[in-house]
């Protein structure tokens, strides 16, 4: 409460010293015997007395502040101040703002620049460092977090891998089924005569000058070839399939699927050439039968034979 007593006196003294905008300060000798430096008379620092200078020094300096500080603080809040201290403070602030750049202003600016520079640098540094600034406990926590996250992600990855495997094998099965179906369709297309065929086989030439070879003989040849594993047969450019009728025409000629075939007949068969050839040459078999009719039959094994004739799709019904 000693400060309370001191307050009004200090305020009176300050108001008596002069306005803050004068720019000149009375060089009053301090109570403690110190004198003020000439620089202190600059700019806004106007109505200083040494007691206040010391108070200011105490405020801005580390520790030994306690002595004059509370007094200075309460001085501004006192209700008994004659020319409102608040107004005084604003005036001083304005004076500081409008003062022409003197030495103290430049110094303050320089120090402020240093502070700004250092602060910015430090902020940048902190942003860049990240982990480096953290304490051990925080690092441990972050590591645990990362570990947990890793575990979670690994579990998720395993799950997804399993799913992928499942899908892949599923699509593999589908693919295999599709492949099978395609192969089956191909085989069926060959058997039904819807597709041209290419492969090894034999070509049989039956020269029949006397037109003695009957439809039955042709059926015999076809049967023999089928028995020997022929996959596709063509007689004189007409595809012979399961439903192809080989019949005799009115004049004793041969009708293949309703079309007249003229001798010499050229029979092409895809299959194992050796087996088919052998089957035709069996004694008492097709060859003998044909030759007994006075016709000649030659066979030629070919490793690459093509049957282009096809039966229109959907036209293979009985």
């Amino acid at each position: 409460m000693a400060h309370k007593h001191e307050r009004p006196r200090r305020d009176r003294r300050r108001t008596g010293t002069g306005s803050p905008t004068t720019g000149e300060a009375a060089q009053a000798p301090g109570a403690d015997g110190t004198t003020r430096t000439p620089g202190a008379a600059d700019a806004a620092a106007t109505d200083l007395d040494d007691a206040e200078a010391r108070a200011q020094a105490d405020r801005a300096d580390p520790p030994p502040a306690a002595t004059a500080d509370p007094a200075a603080e309460t001085a501004e809040t006192g209700p008994g101040a004659t020319p409102s201290p608040r107004r005084l403070a604003w005036l001083r602030l304005r004076a500081a703002f409008t003062a022409r750049p003197g030495r103290s202003q430049l110094l303050a600016a320089f120090l402020c620049a240093i502070l700004g520079f250092a602060a910015t640098t430090q902020i940048r540094q902190t942003e860049a460092d990240g982990l480096q600034q953290l304490s051990e406990a925080e690092l441990v926590r972050i590591m645990a977090d990362v570990g947990q996250r890793t575990e979670r992600l690994e579990a998720e990855r395993d799950e997804l891998l399993a799913q992928q495997r499942e899908l892949a094998s599923g699509s593999d099965q589908q693919e295999a089924a599709r492949e099978q179906a395609r192969a089956r369709a191909e085989a069926l297309a060959i058997l039904t005569g819807e597709a041209p065929v290419e492969g090894s086989g034999i070509v049989i030439e039956v020269t029949d000058p006397g037109r003695a070879v009957t439809a039955a003989d042709m059926v015999g040849i076809v049967q023999e070839l089928r028995d020997a594993g022929a996959e596709a047969i063509e007689i004189s450019g007409i595809r012979v399939v399961a439903s192809t009728a080989i019949t005799a025409s009115a004049d004793g000629g041969v009708l293949i699927g309703g079309e007249e075939a003229e001798p010499p007949y050229r029979v092409a068969a895809i299959g194992d050439p050796e087996t088919m050839d052998t089957a035709l040459q069996i004694p008492g078999g097709v060859r003998d039968t044909v030759e007994r009719r006075g016709a000649a039959m030659t066979t030629e094994r070919q490793s690459r034979l093509e049957i282009r004739a096809t039966v229109a799709a959907g036209n293979t019904g009985p």
Binding site: R14, G39, A40, T46, Q56, L107
Partner: peptide
């Protein structure tokens, strides 16, 4: 604070 209380001293600052 010193500026506002009129006690600013560049040397001290």
């Amino acid at each position: 604070r010193a500026v506002l209380s009129g006690t600013f001293d560049d040397r001290v600052f």
